[in-house]
Amino acid sequence: MSRSLSFKDYQLLSAYMDGRTSTREKARVEAMLAADADFQKTYNEFSRLKRMMKAVPSVKAPRNFTLSATVAPQKPQRFLLAPALNYAALVTAILFVFLFAGSRFWGTSFAAKQAEAPQAMMLSASDESAAAESTLVPMITWGHVGGLGGRGGGAGGSGLGGGPSVAAAPDYGVEAVNPETMVQGTKSPTEGTQTPEPTGDISQLILGLPDESAQGKQLSESNTPIESQRVTVNWLLVGEIGLAVLAVGFAVAAFLLRKRH
C-alpha cells in the first residue's frame, strides 16, 4: 500500500528519527513503515540525510574570542532598560486609565452643559427679538418718501440713499407710480401698517446709512476683520490617544528586549 505523504507524516517521521515521539506515535510510525513503501523510502532518505549532516566536519574557531578588559565593560551591565520600560508602560497605562475614566465623567457633565447652552441662547434670542419688535424702529417705507430706494444702481448716485423725490426724478421714460393713484384692488405693502412720519434725513430712516452729507461719496468697507472660525481640538482625546500609544509602545519595547536576551 502506498499513498502521498502529508506534512504531518513527514513531521512525525522526523521526530521519530530523533526519538521524540510518544509511545502511540511511535507505534503508528512503525505500522506505517511496515505497510507503506513511500513512507519507508522517505524514512531511509531522512536517515541518510541525518548521517550526512552529522558527517559535516566541525570548523575550528580561527582565533580566540575571549574578551579583553578594553573591549568588555568593567562589569556586566545591570539590565535596567527592560525594567525601566516596564515601569514606563505601567505608569502610562495608569495615567491613560485615569484620563479615560476622568474624561468620561467630565465629558458627560460638560456635554450636558453644552446641550443646555443652545437652548438658553435660543430663549434669550427670542426674548431679545420680542423686545426689539415691541419698540418702534425706523422702517423702510414704500411710496410716501420720494425717491427712497429708487434709482438703485443709477448713474447719478451710488444707489445708497436713493435719488431725489419722485417729482425731481429725471424722466427715464418710466412713469413714476404713486401708490395712492394705484388701481383699486391692489394693495400697497404699507397698507394697514403704521408709517412713521417722514423726515428729511434718510439716515434716520434706514439703519446703517450715513447721513446725507455722505451721499455721492464712495463708502469705505469696514476694516473690522471677520472673526475666523476656530478649529477646536479635543486635547483630552489627543492626550488619551497619546498615552495609549506610549503605553503600548513601552510594553512592546520591553517585551522585545526581554525576548532578545
Binding site: F65, L67, V71, A72, P73, P76, Q77, F79, R258, H261
Partner: peptide, 10 residues
C-alpha cells in the same frame, strides 16, 4: 560573546 557578557545578568 560581547553581548553575552553585557547581558549576563539576564
Amino acid at each position: 560573546f560581547l553581548s553575552a557578557y553585557k547581558n549576563l545578568r539576564a
